[in-house]
Design a protein around this nucleic acid. Sequence first.
DNA 1: CTCCGGATTTACGTATACGTAAAGAAATAC
DNA 2: GTATTTCTTTACGTATACGTAAATCCGGAG
Lengths: 228, 228
Amino acid sequence: MASVIEEAPGRVTFAERAYREIKSRILENEIPAGSIMLEQELAALLEMSRTPVREALIRLAREGMIDVRPRHGMRVLPVSANDMREIYQILTALEAEAAAQIAREGAQPKHLAELKAAVTEMDEALTADDLDAWARADDHFHRVILASCGNERLKAIIEQFMDQSHRVRKLTLRLRPRPVSSNDDHRALVDAIERRDAETAWRIHHTHRQRNGRMLVELLERHGLGQL
Amino acid sequence: MASVIEEAPGRVTFAERAYREIKSRILENEIPAGSIMLEQELAALLEMSRTPVREALIRLAREGMIDVRPRHGMRVLPVSANDMREIYQILTALEAEAAAQIAREGAQPKHLAELKAAVTEMDEALTADDLDAWARADDHFHRVILASCGNERLKAIIEQFMDQSHRVRKLTLRLRPRPVSSNDDHRALVDAIERRDAETAWRIHHTHRQRNGRMLVELLERHGLGQL
DNA sequence: CTCCGGATTTACGTATACGTAAAGAAATAC
DNA sequence: GTATTTCTTTACGTATACGTAAATCCGGAG
């Protein structure tokens, strides 16, 4: 399965490893929101010195995953309802723009094919009631959208904010209604892209993300999950 | 003149100073695009050790201002026509969204007043043929828009990309036609905000940024300013 | 001249050292 | 008991040390 999405190989420095390792543990909730860790502890955990850990923390802090307060260590930031509102406002605006651009300029056949495959996967996952598979396919769909639009900067920002909201999406996956309309939205978006109808593509995806964002914000408010 | 926009004071660490100093020199073209500098040189220049310099370079690299290649030092990245296209696609989507939100939720009186004052300044600057004053007022207008929308993340991203395109805007200021339509756009935007017409606010600002971006891209292509 | 292999330099990645200011503990006064 | 002050600890910011792999230099072969 040769996907459109590739990894950059590159040599892996300690600082890079620290970044990936810490970020991964935060995303997977192994270091839950609110946790406090000192540079020393992280260094010991990752079996390296403080230097590369510090460099990783600088990046994570910039990306809004953690907060570093001198002498208090790093603190994994919880995602509040308001944070989620901010994040989805950005995601909505940017992904809708990306969708519009793809429709405007036309998608490559292999991208289009992969989008359709992702939609099919989502349908099948929903039929099989496999929410995890659905989430994977949904994620894949969004990543192909990003890859197709060709704007590297746009891609990077969206990925950053998807990461920031990752824990919330993951932990609320089973609190949400069955995502039937998501599948419909995606099907309609692929259709608009194929017809090269930028206006419609924009509107569909904008509405999709907006609705999704609102739902997550409501979930956070309702359940008072201030500590995600 | 107590503006709506404030500075965070905070203690200023060496790493922070290195970041600001290097970034400022890049923005003001004191270290022009394409320049290569070693960590050692920067450390000597700023009279500190390599450690805080490295931390500053990590941030600058993340923001897309420089490229660090092991054993080759940092390189100040030029802004190509395509970079500019990417940057303005993002700025267009995000600022239009910000404008729409302000109109939707209503602006605070002091913000509205400051927006109007900025427009007046821009008019006066244009009458006086003072392009630098115009650019300052224009910048101020956009910053108040950001401050009003209340989305801190949105603000941070937009500022990041404004920084990335700062050199191009500055160096092409006198190559562009007189920015009469910008003033008109801004006046119309303030009006839409006052009328709380989100739809119109979005459209006006989207068109404004899009046109602006296209002009800058064309300038870069025409003059082949690949080294900005 | 150009091309190649080995010696040499060097820039960086990482580890470690160090001083300091802040946090916390202890001791004292009330 | 509480408040206050002094002392101790410690986490971090920065400087420095060090090993290494990449880049450069250099001389000889063709």
